[in-house]
């Protein structure tokens, strides 16, 4: 775990702590934190800021204690569930969306050997699993909005850096790069974006609406 080099930034952690992230981004954040104790501790710090804000809020109205005690008598609405990392590649948060581990993913080919599976989330952002064969390139693309790419297996490199298991790449509007999956193991990533990617080739631009990437 100590090998993770690329982490969540403050903005993502604060947004997650505040409960303002789109669901698709929330899934990437929760998956990374499941793999990274450093970011888990940083999230704890950002949540502590929330605690301080709550302490500080001006109050005007009381809440009904008796009604609350009656509610407690009825027992929890849903069973109290604690998700501890299961055996397998995916943390529980991700397994919930896939309906299982890696072998349960319903892949679709998107060309050039790359496969993807879009996971169902709210519409303000989208998230998918990507399967890139070892040694293959992901098409050169720029971004609109923000794109998060979390490596779950294998590794990819671009012109600037290497991203291995647990590493998170945060790409914004200005970033144009050509990620290539490393030789050896196929690369599996969880990628979220709040805008459609724009591919730079004409054919890819035409195909984009069909691929939904």
């Amino acid at each position: 775990m100590s090998k993770i080099k690329h982490h969540l930034n403050d903005a993502l952690l604060m947004s997650y702590a505040a409960g303002s992230l789109p669901e698709a981004f929330g899934l990437v954040v929760a998956t990374h934190i499941s793999m990274c104790d450093d970011c888990r501790a940083r999230l704890g710090a950002f949540e502590a800021v929330g605690g301080a804000m709550l302490d500080d809020v001006a109050t005007s109205q009381d809440v009904d204690l008796k009604a609350t005690l009656a509610l407690i008598e009825k027992g929890p609405k849903a069973p109290i569930r604690v998700d501890v990392t299961k055996l397998g590649l995916f943390p529980s948060a991700l397994q919930d969306y896939v309906g299982g581990d890696l072998d349960a993913v319903k892949w679709r080919a998107v060309g050039m050997g790359v496969r993807q599976a879009i996971l169902p989330t709210s519409k303000d952002a989208s998230v998918r699993l990507l399967h890139i064969p070892a040694g293959c390139a992901v098409p050169d693309h720029g971004h609109r909005g923000t794109e998060l790419t979390l490596v779950l297996q294998g590794a990819f490199k671009d012109e600037f850096d290497r991203f291995g298991p647990g590493d998170l790449e945060i790409a914004t509007e200005e970033d144009v790069h050509t990620p290539v999956a490393e030789e050896g193991v196929d690369c599996i990533c969880l990628a979220a974006t709040d805008a459609p990617l724009k591919f730079r080739g004409l054919v890819q631009r035409i195909a984009q609406p069909f691929l939904r990437i």
Partner: peptide
């Protein structure tokens, strides 16, 4: 930010 009045893109990285 903590009361949900800022979107994630409005929250700056340099807090």
């Amino acid at each position: 930010a903590y009361f949900g009045d800022l979107t994630h893109s409005e929250i700056a990285d340099e807090t």
